[in-house]
Design a protein around this nucleic acid. Structure first.
Lengths: 208, 208
DNA sequence: GTCTATAAGACGATAGAC
DNA sequence: GTCTATCGTCTTATAGAC
């Protein structure tokens, strides 16, 4: 074979994004150097610039991909009319997605302040689109009388904060599995809008 | 006067901590340089080392002060026996304190990963002490039958995440004042443990 | 597409004058 | 206690060989 088929470059680019995501999630964007990223990819720092013009563009790319993927996955979910069913479905989706992609979630939230103004505005728009989805569910449920909500915008942020917080403590192999956590959070979210839990949980051994 | 009375040094040290806190909260510890901190204090970078042996020690000092102050303020709150009253009081305290000290809260949470192992362990112990306080309230309320809770540890983290999230969106001069936000969050927290809101909120004009 | 080498400057931290 | 000056190292990004 005279030349390399199957672009090696695309493979490297994906590898760079993967390793950068892990490094940014663990140490923070500002604390990670281009040399470190290159080292994790087994290439030299200079080679990174074949794919990304600046370090900032790596961060921006990661955050944009994360938010776009999140919104695409949300779009792929079945759209439910009934407010309680819609809220339950959204809660399940959010918990599952956030447990599934902890590094992306972490970076997309923690590194907002390291984005330059234009990328920042773009990512914030995507975030707001996601928040609007929940806000609409809450507004519909409030209008239909299904939910008891004092203030829809605040409750929207509260629910998202509560659920996203799962990433700060969840680790695989702990006391609870994903299915159990999903159930617990769904009930927490339903409680927040004044609804009864969907089913009773088995009582588990706990320690303070 | 032959010599300076009233230690100028202590003033400078306080100023350094104040400016460093603001800078760390806005740009992140790793993205802020000693020269920047010194610049905000109108001194030269070398002078910082009269007060702090390393940059890391500034961060550690800020986080330790924040957590100690938080726990001291919590200790100063009246201790209520009745689970519902205790939970309501804790929720009010948390919201008020977190709205009051947004920079400290932000740094204490976001910069954990930039702490070296020993300071990290110390700060985590203080965090856990705070979390245990809420966990005890929830456990008491569950035991007495006042609260309906699936899982106390998860609910503890969920409530703290939900409430701390107020810092991501609250700005003075917005649609809601602190008193209103406090009320809304108290009701959210009570709902989470299966209790009725303490009183009905006035319906406010909102936008999607 | 990846390498080596390097430019141009910022970094944390220190030394010594005053 | 603060200054200026500096050490040694690290940084992002580029240039040019292969």
């Amino acid at each position: 074979m005279a030349r390399t088929f199957g672009s090696v470059g695309k493979e490297t680019e994906k590898r760079v994004l993967k390793e950068a995501l892990t490094l940014f999630a663990h140490h923070g964007y500002a604390a990670v150097s281009m040399r470190q990223i290159a080292g994790q990819c087994n290439i030299q720092a200079g080679a990174l610039y074949n794919y990304f013009p600046t370090k900032q563009s790596i961060l921006h790319g990661l955050m944009k991909t994360h938010m776009k993927d999140l919104l695409l996955a949300l779009d792929a979910e079945p759209l439910l009319e009934q407010p309680k069913a819609a809220l339950e479905s959204f809660a399940r989706f959010h918990i599952r997605y956030h447990i599934d992609k902890p590094e992306g979630v972490f970076v997309a939230y923690m590194e907002l302040r390291n984005l330059e103004p234009e990328p920042y505005a773009e990512i914030m728009k995507l975030r707001q689109k996601y928040e609007r989805f929940l806000r609409k569910i809450l507004r519909d449920g409030q209008a239909s009388g299904d939910f008891k909500i004092d203030d829809v915008p605040v409750t929207t942020m509260a629910i998202i904060s509560m659920m996203t917080g799962v990433n700060t403590w969840f680790r695989y192999g702990g006391r609870l599995g994903i299915e159990e956590i999903e159930k617990i959070y769904v009930n927490l979210v339903l409680s927040v809008v004044g609804l009864e839990p969907v089913n009773v949980m088995p009582r588990l051994e706990e320690t303070v």
